[in-house]
Structure formats: structure tokens, C-alpha cells
Design a binder for these strands. Structure first.
Lengths: 125, 125, 125, 125
DNA sequence: GTGGTCTAGACCACT
DNA sequence: GTGGTCTAGACCACA
């Protein structure tokens, strides 16, 4: 899918982010089996060791669970997935707020601009 | 400054974006002289031709004005700079809305989440 | 075809003018495919980059449309082609008027001379 | 002055055209002395032989008269200068008509367009 | 010194 | 095959 990686973050984290996205969007449901390390390595065109590190990372964060001889599975703990979604949300909000601040907008203007944009969009659709 | 460029957009456009940012943040004021094509090429570590293309692009968009033999200058037309700021704002809002939608949030939730985040930040400061 | 270029205008603009002429004269109809950048470079004996710049210029002016991997095509928007013809007409009238003024003729004399010339031609044919 | 010559006509004729222009515009009056062949050669950056050929040509056309040991002078015969002006006028009209015809305009449209252009110009000035 | 233009040759993504 | 982009290096006009 995404062929190139950013230089700002380690590749194994970027792969984790990709997989987190799939969970949040529901492409990977709680309990689903992730692709094998080797499959995943092929998909992202990276070394299997890199994917292994990604899976380790995700396991440390309790987002996936590895079952010996069976594979790696998305956690069935909805709370973990909820937290994941919340933290992704926070990242996007922070990025948005940061950029708007750099452009010199106040907090009130941010909310107002967002509201304005959404209102404009609704009437046009 | 920023050393690497994204693969998603041509470099000459990314350089334009960088310079637009400097204008919006006030680092480049109306009427200011931009660095020369050759200086800019050194700063961004690209070929001078690439910067020349950037300057052409910016001139077509009326954001800068070149004076033969003297250099390239930020337009003194405040309206153009205002439009620039508005369009940058719109881009960020669109990106934010798009990502929040991909995560499954409704418009109301976006505004509420943003408000919540800002409120939380204020009490902590 | 035309082998030499004027020194007064950049080559890439002169190539655009040549192609505009072909459109106005109907040698290139709306929707027709232009010669490829490389073919055109051979025809005009210039570097392909120069033709690429010409095609870019024409696309910015909405006179042609490029389809990725297929080629560059004359716009089907008749209005654009009409505007093109009008602007070419204006250029020729301006040039004519300018030269006649340099020779000291009044506006009335210009029209009268033109009319006279045309009348003389008709009776001879 | 003009440094480059067109490749379409011999240089000596192009120099003659330049000098004819000066006569028509009154920079060279009837009876005036033309610059010497050597001066003229310096001005146009060509070989003196080329200018000599120009002067010969102009003498054959009765536009100038050479007086041994004194130089070359514009004819005092107003008729010749009138004819010169007429022939220059005709050249411009022919060129204009030819280009308008190539664009597909009828004779009536040419006159109307010219009149229209002049009228528009008058009201704006 | 400034930007503008042109050539030569390379790599890319898309069809 | 198509156009789009980038680099390297050159020459030009203008101030």
C-alpha cells in the first residue's frame, strides 16, 4: 500500500500506525488475525524483522495478542481499542490546534472556523 | 532548514509552501525581498532551477513580484496575503475534518472534541 | 517547419503561438491530440523540456488539457478557443495600428486605406 | 541600434528598410546627408561592404543620391518619398489583410474590427 | 549581482 | 508510450 516511509519516525512505528488505522476504521475487528509477519513484510516491502518489532511494540501496548503457533490477533478488550481511538483523535486535534496557532488564530477562532466550514459544507451538499 | 521533501508533491511546490508559511507567520513581510534563487537553492539543497520554478509559480499566483535585476519581493497587496492565509486555514480544516471522518466521528463530535481539548488545556496552563 | 525563432520572445512562447495558430486555422480541432512533447521537440528542433514548458503554459491558459499517460489535447471548450481567436485578432490590429501611427497616419486614414486596398483588390480579381 | 537581423531577408535590405523608416518618420528629411558608409557600418555592426550595397540599392530606387566626395543624400524629390511611404503602407496593409484572412475573417469583418478597436480606444483615452 | 531561458540527460508515475 | 519533475551547467538581459 504505502510504499515510502517518512524519515521522521522509525519505520516499525509507521507500520504500527498503519495497522492502528485499520483497527479504528474497522478493517481489523477485535479478535481478527493480523497478517503474518512474513506477509506483512511483503506488503510493506520491508524486512520481516522490522515487522516483528512492530508486532512486539503493539503487544507491549496491549493492542494485539500473540498466540504461539497461531498468529497475532487484535485484542478483544474494547477499552484498549477505545483508548487507541482516543489517542489518535488527540493527536489530530493537537496537530490541528498547533497549526492554527502557528497561523495566529485564537482558540475561539479555531472553533468558529471549524463550525463555519462544516456549516458551509452542509448547505452545499 | 527542512532537509527532506515529501514524495507526494513536487519539490518546487513544497518550497513555495514553506515560503508561504513564512509570509503567514510574518517572517516575510509585504514588500520584503525573498532570498535570491541561488541562496534559496543552497538553503533547501536543491538545484537553482527548481527554486526558479517555485518563484515563477508564486509570481503567477501574484504572491510575489520580481523586479528585473533586483530580486523577488513579497507582494504589498494585503488582499493576496489574506487570501493565502484563508486558503492555508481551509486546507488544515479540511485535513482535520477528513481524518476525523475517517475515524467515524460526526460533525458535532468534532467540534465538541476540539472544544473539550481546548478547555482541558486552558485549565492546565 | 519554422526553423528559426525570434530573439524577442522566449522560444517556448513562440511554439505556443505556432500551435495556437494551428487551432485558429482549424488544423487542430477541439479535442484533437497534440503531437507528443518529444515529437514536437523534433519538429521544432528544440529540447523536449522547452516543449514541456510550452504545454504547461497552454494548460495554465486552459487551451489544452493533459491526460496522464495519454497525451495533450485541445480543449473542447469553444469559448476558450473563441477567446484565443479574439486575442490573436487584437494583437494583429494593434500591430497594424501602431505601425500606421508611426508613419503618421490618422485613424480615419487607416480605415480608408484599408478599405481602398480591399476595394482595389476586389476589382482586380 | 537593432543588433540582430532576421534570417529571412538579406541584411543589406534590412538596413535599407531601417533607413526608409527614418525618412518616413522624418528623422531623415529630404536633402539630409546620410551617415557615411563607415559610420553606418559601425552603427549596425556589419561590414562596410554591406552598407555600400544598401546605398547602391537605395540609389537604384532613386531614394538617395550620391555626390562624389561629399556623401549620400536623401532625395529632394517629394514624389519618391511619397511613393516610399505608400509602398510601406501597402506592405503593412497586405500583411494585416493576409493575417486576418488566415484567421478566417471576411473583408467586411476586417474593416469592422479595425473600426471597433479604434472606437474602443478613443473612448478609453 | 538579479531572474529568465535553454539544453542534455535522467528518473518517475500512469495507461 | 505519455507528460512531470529534477539536476547540472550554460548563456542572456537588466540594474
Amino acid at each position: 500500500m504505502t510504499d515510502k516511509f517518512d524519515t521522521s519516525k522509525p519505520i516499525y512505528k509507521q507500520i504500527a500506525d498503519q495497522l492502528y488505522w485499520r483497527m479504528i476504521r474497522g478493517e481489523l475487528q477485535p479478535g481478527d488475525k493480523l497478517p503474518s509477519v512474513r506477509e506483512c513484510a511483503v506488503e510493506f516491502k520491508v524486512n520481516p524483522n522490522t515487522v516483528a518489532r512492530t508486532y512486539n511494540e503493539m503487544e507491549r501496548e496491549k493492542v494485539v495478542k500473540t498466540k504461539r503457533g497461531q498468529g497475532t490477533f487484535v485484542t478483544t478488550d474494547e477499552n484498549v481499542l477505545f483508548d487507541l481511538k482516543e489517542s489518535m483523535k488527540k493527536i489530530h486535534i493537537e496537530e490541528f490546534v498547533h497549526e492554527m496557532e502557528e497561523m495566529g488564530y485564537t482558540e475561539e477562532e479555531m472553533v468558529a472556523s471549524l463550525q463555519e466550514y462544516l456549516d458551509g459544507r452542509d448547505t452545499n451538499d
